[in-house]
């Protein structure tokens, strides 16, 4: 079964590019245009990984990430944060993201990081407990 990827991003054109990249890599995708929708999708779709934009309407990427981490049943879900701001990336990691990328990003790097996160997932200590 292919991995499921949720793309939470409000910019349509970026969504389109991410969708293409993920599908091309053989993942199943779903998209959400704002923070609330993103959480809804996590609940419905059970993604293995969420590509999460930092600045989302209604609920910011940080809030979404914190809520995901707060739910034990979603503990397995990997989060890759996307940020358009230079610099302040550690806040994303502090909020519980597994990795982050600055916009604009190199597509190959993005795909590689997504793959790495998915491969590494079972090695996480929490995963076993």
């Amino acid at each position: 079964m292919s991995h499921r990827i949720l793309i939470a991003e409000d910019e349509e054109s970026i969504v389109a590019s991410l969708e293409f990249l993920m599908r091309r890599s053989g993942f199943e995708t779903r998209t959400a245009a704002d923070g609330r929708e993103a959480l809804q999708c996590v609940a419905d779709f059970h993604p293995d990984l969420v590509i999460l934009d930092l600045m989302l309407p209604f609920k910011s990427g940080l809030e979404v990430c914190a809520e995901i981490r707060a739910r034990p049943e979603w503990r397995e879900t990997r989060v890759l944060m996307l940020t358009a701001r230079g610099g302040a990336n550690e806040e994303g990691l502090l909020a519980g993201a597994d990795d982050y990328l600055s916009k604009p990003f190199a597509t190959r790097e993005l795909v590689a990081r997504v793959r790495a996160l998915l491969v590494l997932a079972p090695l996480r200590p929490e995963a076993g407990s």
Binding site: E11, S13, I14, L18, P104, F105, A106, T107, R108
Partner: peptide, 25 residues
């Protein structure tokens, strides 16, 4: 400046992503 940077990065992200997609595929 930081807002402008953010606003500039967004279209730039799409442009770069699609350019690379077109280039790699």
């Amino acid at each position: 400046i930081s807002t402008v940077t953010h606003e500039l990065r967004t279209p730039l992200t799409s442009i770069r992503a699609f350019s690379e997609i077109l280039h790699d595929n």
